[in-house]
């Protein structure tokens, strides 16, 4: 296999890391390089959150009470649903059911757009209450994390449109769907990050 050949020729990865020994890589290797980079980036944000909370416990206890919790909960449900729709799209492409696959991709895209609209409204609502990135240490961390996540949802939603275009042009089938699967795992990664962000910013006091 090509990837094994590259691994062997480089000689930097243990044999046990090869797909043959460790199992299939969903999507492709480049998307996993991207995903692991994003996880590192968000990991730094989470570390910053815990360090800031250590130094400013009172600010971080008050902060979540200033946020619009209902909007945070709604966005969590929207993103979880989008992950479900993405998983359904993958299951239908494996059955060569392109129509249902496309339908679920549109639903995932709609969830992405809904998330962006709700988040925009939340930022506006915060602004109306007088909260901004410089209000307190909590809000600085809040805007860093949520705006960064907002950007990720934005460009991944655009990627869904691209994948729908490719699906319509016949690029994906039950046999070849690595591009679609790469987007699916990336989308799930974005959902996973929100699963961590939500309790940190909206629930924990």
């Amino acid at each position: 296999m090509k990837s094994n050949h590259i691994n062997n020729s480089l000689g930097i990865f243990p044999k046990s890391w090869s797909e043959k020994h460790a199992g299939r890589i969903p999507g492709n290797i480049p998307i996993w390089v991207g995903i692991l980079s994003e996880l590192t980036e968000f990991g730094i944000f989470f570390a910053a959150y815990f360090i800031a909370k250590f130094y400013y416990p009172d600010v971080f206890a008050q902060g979540p009470q200033s946020l619009h919790t209902s909007l945070g909960v709604t966005n969590t449900i929207v993103l979880l649903s989008s992950s479900y729709f993405m998983a359904k799209a993958m299951s239908f492409i494996r059955l060569d059911n392109l129509i249902k696959c496309e339908r679920y991709l549109w639903l995932a895209f709609a969830c992405g757009c809904l998330y962006l609209m709700i988040k925009t409204w939340e930022f506006h609502w915060n602004d109306l209450q007088g909260f901004g990135p410089t209000t307190s240490e909590f809000f600085t961390v809040y805007y860093y994390m949520t705006f960064n996540h907002f950007l990720h949802v934005g460009w991944a939603s655009c990627a869904i449109l691209w994948v729908i275009f490719r699906l319509r042009s016949g690029a994906y089938s039950a046999k070849e769907n690595s591009g679609l699967e790469a987007l699916a795992v990336y989308w799930h990664m974005i959902d996973l990050m929100w699963i961590l962000i939500f309790p940190l910013l909206y629930v924990l006091r």
Binding site: A22, R24, P26, M86
Partner: peptide, 11 residues
């Protein structure tokens, strides 16, 4: 959802 249960064990 990500389907890693039956995929690459390192990931």
């Amino acid at each position: 959802f990500m389907e890693l249960k039956a995929a690459n064990k390192n990931l």
